[in-house]
Every structure is written in C-alpha cells, then in structure tokens.
Amino acid sequence: MLLPRVKRKHEPHRFDDGTVRIGGEIYGLATEISDPTGGAWAALTLMDGTRSPADVAEAVCRRLPGVSALQASRIVAALIASGHVEDASAPIPGELSERERERYNRSQAFFHQVDLAPGRQGWDAQVRLRAARVVVLGLGGTGSHAAWALAASGVGRLHCVDADVVELSNLNRQVLYTEDDLGRAKVDAAVGRLRRLNSDIEVTGERRAIGSEADLLSVVTGADVLALCADEPREPGIRIWANRICARAGVPWVGGGYNGPLVTVGAFAPGRGACYECLAAGEARRRRPGLPVDLGGPGVVAASAGVSGHLVAHSVISLLTGVPEPTTGTVIGLNLIAPDQHVWVRHPPRPECPVCGSDAEIDRVTK
C-alpha cells in the first residue's frame, strides 16, 4: 500500500500569504504552491507515512470542511506526483546486498533528495548503476578522476582503456598513480587501484591506442555510456570519431577536459539534442571570425583535473540513472579564475547533419 511521506530535506514551509514552499532552499528542487483553501498545507502535514492517500484526503476534509472530497483527492494526487513525497512502505530493491546498502547509503540519500520522479526512492538509481557498463577512454588527469568516481559510485562494470605509461609529470594531477607506478602501464596501475577501491564491481582494462574509427567502435560496442577522457588523435579528432561511432552504435557519450582554468564537459545521446559536431559548428558561427578555438592544453593542476573528471562522472551517472535529468546536446563548465563566467553552450541540430539532423540516416550497431 502506498503510504505517502514528505521526503527528508523537502519539508514544507508556509508563508504569511498562504503560499506553501516544498523542497527546501536548493535551487532547482523547490516548488511553491498557491494554497488559498489550505488543503495542500493540511495534506502535507498529514503525509507522515502512516496514512494511505485516501486516508490523507479524508483527514483533510475533516480538518477543512470547505474542501470537498474530490478537491482533497486531487490535492493529494498532485502532491504525490510532485516528486517531493515518497512511499514509506516501498521496500529496498532485492538486488542490493546488505554490504552494498551500507556502502552506498550516502549515494541513496543524494539520489533520493534530488530525484523528483514520482515513486522512486534513491535505491532505484543505485540498481541502475550496478547493472551498467561504462568505458573510460583515457586515464590521464580527467580520466583518472572520472574512473575513480565511477568506481566509488558503484558502476557495475567499468572498462578502462589507455596506451600510456605513468610518468613523473603525471603525478601532479592523476589521482590513481603513485611514485611506485612510474614506468608501469597506466591501465594496469589504474585497474589495480580501482579494484582495491571497490571489490563489489568488475573492473577491466586494456592497453591500446585508438587509431581509427574501427578501433573506437570495438571499444564502445556493448557499453551503456562512453566516458571520453582522451584527446588523441587530434586530427581529424577523436571527439569527431566518438560523435559518429557512438551515434551509429546507439551509445551515449560524455567528453570532458580542461584548458588552463577553463573546465568543460559535454553529454551527447543519439536522438536527444544536437550532436558534438553541430555544437562545434554553432560555436564557430558565434565566435568572432579568425578567433582560434583551443579546447585543450598542458596547463592543469590537481584541482582543475579533479573538477573536470568529476563533472564527467556526474554526467555519466546522470545518463545512466536519469538523476538528475541529463542535459544532452550541451556543453557546460566553469572558469576557475572567473567564477561568474559559467559555460553553457547549446545549439540546434543542423538539418543537414548526417549524425543528428532531420535527414540523418545512421545504420545502428546492435549493442
């Protein structure tokens, strides 16, 4: 039986003019309700996990004789649909062991707080992560932090790909390596570290360079999401390859990186907004003619690499779980030396684009 209860951190507040605010002060979560009859406030105070929706509606009518049974039922239904209310009787999914519930209880609290989809309780997102397969391509500054965050978050199968060895200059920002790893293949050191971080997931790796679209296709086939954290080859561009191959394979992908203090991440999914090439073309049209576009560079500190990697991991988790709602076809970011200069890049698909345009005809590869 559904037993509605207002979520923790979503407790309602009633203003002097009768307006009810539910969802707290977190930007993007709170909802303000015009409540002239007082029915919404009464229903929220009665939703403590001990009454069914019908019982709540009946109690509202008793408390407020001017509210009809139909009005009360509609108010209760609207509040349940708002996402600020949970089902106190919902069981924890059986897929998760007691050990996993203990490991991820803070993750569950995060998902529970920010997910406004009715009927979900936070553990649903963790189950989706547990069932997912993510490929992290590139284990440098961005990729090492992203892989760490995805393993810690409980992605069930994590596959790491990199061709390089650990060098001393890597250690200012690449979190998975130590001085003892100098000269080792990055992928070997990374896989070992990630397995020690989380033995409840499967971590695999391969040392290889991506030299063609065929190489990239062989890596992403069967993945749920690609985390693209590599910047080579630069010509014609591995992001161009990812854009086309992932569209063909039906695999969403996330690309992130840094250029000095500028940190950006983009998320792309077939059929959901503009592709990477359309965004790049839109930015080229917007910029002053002749201004060079440089989306990478050697300037980086541990903090900027960490922000970059964790933005990638956050976008991957969003794509896998739907929490928060993924912002696909978009590049976002921040400038660490100019906090007021947020990055928000969005352009419509070009009709003639062979990847995402209205005339696109892509042969899908079965996952």
Rank of each mutant, 00 (worst) to 15 (best):
R133M: 05
A42F: 03
T142V: 15
S315N: 13
A78W: 00
V85I: 10
I92G: 04
Y276E: 05
A214T: 06
L291Y: 03
A313F: 09
G260F: 00
G143P: 02
G299E: 15
E102Q: 10
A338E: 15
L158G: 05
V316F: 09
V85A: 05
E277F: 00
L171C: 03
S358E: 15
Y27N: 14
E213V: 03
L226R: 07
S153Q: 08
L262A: 14
V187I: 05
T330G: 07
L228D: 14
G183F: 01
I337C: 12
P233E: 13
G282W: 01
A125V: 00
P4W: 00
G290C: 04
R101S: 08
S315C: 10
A360M: 06
P36M: 06
E213M: 07
A42R: 11
T330K: 12
H84K: 02
V316I: 04
A30M: 08
P298M: 12
L79E: 11
E235I: 01
E277W: 00
V331N: 11
S34K: 13
E100M: 10
S358M: 01
F110M: 09
G271P: 02
V165R: 14
R350N: 08
G39F: 00
A163T: 08
N172C: 03
V175Y: 07
L217S: 13
E32T: 13
C246K: 06
K367E: 14
E277G: 14
N335A: 11
A81F: 00
R244A: 15
V187A: 11
G322N: 09
P349C: 15
L29A: 12
V60D: 07
V251H: 09
V155Q: 10
Y276W: 12
G94M: 03
N170D: 11
D48H: 02
